[in-house]
Structures are given as C-alpha cells and as structure tokens.
C-alpha cells in the first residue's frame, strides 16, 4: 500500500488536466428542451417495456376479478418464502464476497501506470465478451469431481476424496461472484479515478502515514461508490437464473428458477406475477434505501 500511495504521489504532476478537480460536482443548468430529445426513448420504454410489465404484474391481483388470493397463497406457503429467503441470502453472500475481492483490485488498477491500467482493465472487462453460459459451464470443467481443482489437490495429496465444490450453494456463489465482479469493480474504479491525487499529496505533506491517508482520505471518498456497487451486485444476484440452474445441480433453487417453473411447467402465471411483484418491491426498497443513505451521507 505504501508503494501504491507513493507512486500515486509521484504521478500526479503528469496527470492530464482533463481530470477536473470538481469532476461530477458541477451541475448543468436544467433545460426543458432536453426533455424533447428523451421523448423517443421514453415512448419506446413506456409502451414496449413498462406497460406490458405492469400488465403482467397486474395478473397478481386479478383472476379475473380483483383478489388478494395469490398474495395470501404466497405468504402462507413456506416453500415460496424459503426460496425467497434463500435467494436473498445468496445475494448477500455474493455481495459480501464481491466487496473485499473487488475493492483491492480496483485500488490496484487505479494506481497502475496508464498503459498497464489499460491491460488490467481489459482483463476485467474480458469476461463480458464471453457468454454467461460458456463461463458457467467452464466452472464445471474446473470444479467438478474430475475437474482441474480436485484432480490437482488429489495428486498433491492435500485431500483424499474430491471436494464437493460444485452442485451446491458454494458452486453457485463462485459462479455469481465470477459474473458480477466486473459490475462492482468498474463503477468503483471510475469513482476512484475521479479522486484528486492532490488530496492525497496534501495529506502526505501534512505528515499523514500511508495507512492514515487511505483510511481518512481515500476510503471515505469511495464509500458511496462501494455502497452503490454493492447494491447493484445484490440486486443483480436476486435475478440470477442460469448460474443456479447449472452450478446448483438442482439443489439450489433461486427465485428466477422458481418463476421458470411457475411459468413453463405448472403453469401458474398469477403466482409468478405475485412473486415478481414482491421481488420488484424488495429491489426498489433496497434501491431507495441506498439513495437515502447516500443523500444523508452527503
């Protein structure tokens, strides 16, 4: 960390003036004409996306007349609540793993020289270009009983029988973290890049140790981005389908898998709409809570 801070200090003079010290703080004046340009997108989103979604969600309260029946069924059936809670728990664990993995990575990339930073960034973004299905199946090759990890550990004599890494919750969490880490790292990196190096220099010139500079200056400035990224990862995990379906081995049921079942197998679309509505409410409250926290912090 010391070298990182020092390198940062040495680099400041060479940074282009483009990274304005007030980056993001200055607000452009509101203009009503801007609205006109957004109108086409608004129409497409509203008519082609939002209206159908609302119509689908309306299935949860009508069949065919207004009824609370489906919500009663949802809250009275322990299976649905269990799946719901299971999903929330996996999302929490995924977030809890993504943050300590992603933060040092973003920090490290932030203080790399420009050329190497580009390479590191490309490596982070690379998985985006590989289909999620391919990536998920790749984990089977790595983590299975006859996979690379188990075979290597067996040959080294570390373990006597293959570890059960795959086809359980651990496998699912490895998969979700793999997919979602870039979603956490990239916005965090963007926010770290905006931190003015002169702040760190100023702290150093006043005699603060590298540790103090990090904890008292750098880290507090990244907290909003960390919480925003964490919320993003949490929300995205709630909707995961492919990863639990493949890496969970049918032992880990998440909400999306449940919805697939209700839509394509049973079929109980009213209940699917109910669960979707509850999920949407949970996601929206998480989001507004994060907004509220951030506004309070500022």
């Amino acid at each position: 960390m010391t070298t990182g801070a020092r390198r940062a200090g040495g680099e400041v003079g060479r940074l282009p003036p483009g990274s304005a010290p007030d980056g993001g703080l200055a607000r452009p004046p509101r203009r009503s004409t801007g609205f006109v340009f957004v109108l086409p997108l608004l129409l497409v989103m509203g008519v082609c996306f939002n209206v159908p979604i609302v119509l689908m969600l309306a299935w949860s309260v009508k069949n065919p007349t207004l009824t609370p029946r489906h919500y009663q069924e949802f809250f009275a059936t322990s299976v649905y609540l269990k799946v719901f809670w299971n999903t929330v728990r996996i999302a929490l664990v995924t977030t809890a793993v993504c943050v300590p993995l992603g933060y040092p990575l973003a920090y490290w990339i932030r203080f790399l020289p420009a050329g190497r930073r580009l390479v590191a960034l490309a490596l982070v973004v690379l998985p985006f270009w590989v289909s999620i299905l391919v990536r998920t199946y790749a984990w089977i090759v790595l983590l299975g009983n006859a996979g690379l990890v188990n075979r290597m550990l067996l040959r080294l004599g570390v373990i006597e029988s293959p570890l059960g890494i795959l086809y359980n919750e651990l496998g699912v969490i490895i998969g979700t973290v793999n997919v979602l880490l870039p979603f956490f790292v990239l916005p965090l990196l963007a926010s770290m890049a905006r931190i003015d190096d002169r702040l760190l220099q100023a702290a150093a010139s006043l005699g603060a140790s590298a540790r103090t500079i990090f904890w008292r200056v750098f880290f507090p400035l990244t907290v909003p981005a960390v919480s925003a990224g964490a919320i993003l990862v949490f929300i995205l995990t709630l909707g995961f389908y492919v990863t639990p379906a493949i890496l969970g081995g049918g032992r880990v049921t998440m909400i999306a898998n449940m919805l697939d079942l209700l839509i394509n197998q049973l079929p109980d679309w009213e209940l699917a709409a109910t669960i979707s509505t509850v999920l949407l409410v949970v996601v929206l409250s998480c989001y507004s809570m994060s907004r509220w926290l951030r506004n309070r912090a500022v």
Partner: peptide, 16 residues
C-alpha cells in the same frame, strides 16, 4: 396433482 406435487417436491428439496 401437478400443483400439489410441485410444492411438496420443492419443500422436500429445500429441506435437505
């Protein structure tokens, strides 16, 4: 029986 069985199936699996 699909509805009933599916609920019981999921409940049973979650109980593991």
């Amino acid at each position: 029986n699909a509805d009933l069985v599916e609920k019981r199936w999921q409940a049973w699996k979650l109980g593991q």
